[in-house]
Design a protein around this nucleic acid. Sequence first.
DNA 1: TTGACAAAGTAAACGCAGTTTACAAAATGA
DNA 2: TCATTTTGTAAACTGCGTTTACTTTGTCAA
Lengths: 220, 220
Amino acid sequence: MGPTNRREREKEALRTQILDAARYLFARDGYDAVTMRAIAERIEYSPRTIYLHFQDKEDLVRELCRHDFQVFGAELAKAGQVKSPLARIKAMGRGYAAFGLQNPNHYRLMFMSDSPDYEGKGEEEWKDNPEVDAYALLRDTVQQAIDQGLMAPAYTDAELVAQTVWAGIHGVVALALAKEGDPWVDWRPIAARVEAMSDAIVDGLSAGAAAPARSARKGR
Amino acid sequence: MGPTNRREREKEALRTQILDAARYLFARDGYDAVTMRAIAERIEYSPRTIYLHFQDKEDLVRELCRHDFQVFGAELAKAGQVKSPLARIKAMGRGYAAFGLQNPNHYRLMFMSDSPDYEGKGEEEWKDNPEVDAYALLRDTVQQAIDQGLMAPAYTDAELVAQTVWAGIHGVVALALAKEGDPWVDWRPIAARVEAMSDAIVDGLSAGAAAPARSARKGR
DNA sequence: TTGACAAAGTAAACGCAGTTTACAAAATGA
DNA sequence: TCATTTTGTAAACTGCGTTTACTTTGTCAA
């Protein structure tokens, strides 16, 4: 086998070093603060070396966030345990918001910047993408709620309802990340805003539902 | 008066030329596309000249958008004509969304980027700021709704309710601007999403209101 | 052991960004 | 007329992502 093995390990170690340095900068100061030169300086290599391990800066940052995105998916999957569909939706909202507020820079990258071009990329590209999984989980939960007669009669389209729920919670988080600190709005505590949104949006979509009486129609 | 007058006019004209060139670039390609060099080239002056009229790029772009911000304020004020508070809130939501979707780059600058530091700035800084006026208008409308017993008993705080309504609509617009085109979500038409949000959020906040709501409960 | 070859690394540069320095030209007002 | 202010410029500075051209180093077959 020779030393090839060791070299591979060393290469991997350097790659990890790069990611660690970048993660530090990214978490602390955001995307723009991650400069190739700053990373290079932290790891005491020349900037060019980074390009031996990553195609470009975007590649590096996306790789960097992959792990944290899994955390995001897991946090939402946890909420998937709640039994009642409506309560489950609210729980997912809280989990979603918690992730965004605790990882503002990751959140900005995932949901507040233009997403990368998916032109010409196949489905493989978005397999194992926690964003996709999370959306699917939400939509399926909404569908269950509809099937069980928990939604208002006007809302029969699970996609539309899921997109509305998502938008509501996203709005709270995005506004908090962009506008917190503005002196001209007397912002209520963020926890209260998350709670109000989760409640209001689910109540609004389910208001005047026929009844939970009718036993669940199976389907979907 | 001498030629001083003419020179002032000429200076003003050049300033306008700069703004026009910048506006063109900004509306078409967004903040990053507005480079000082590109502006200079369009107006056939050297880049340095721009700095005789504007302190820096941010100053220029903010000045550039001031006019369009007025349009934003006006669009929302229009919705202020609607009589019923709840219908007025929905109308404001539609107006807000329409502005954001028709002026994506302005919207990004106003609501999706970190706002400038207000550290040490006095109240004058945000007088005549349409953002502020619009928020105040929304909050006052919410307060009216509360006073008329149109809101659910749990919602007695006009600030919190206004912030929730704002977040909901913002979520729809922001998600549309950042994620439209993503292939892994079967996006519903944006008009339907705006409508669903306006309805759901207002219904959710007003559901089970004590007073005249009973008769008003239309199916959607 | 040697020597070809690939891998890993570097210094310096390229192009583009915002911005500034140092200077020239022109208009103004005394 | 002439000093002063205004208006403009060319060229540069710094910092960014990225690349070119080169050196060093380790590996492995002959």
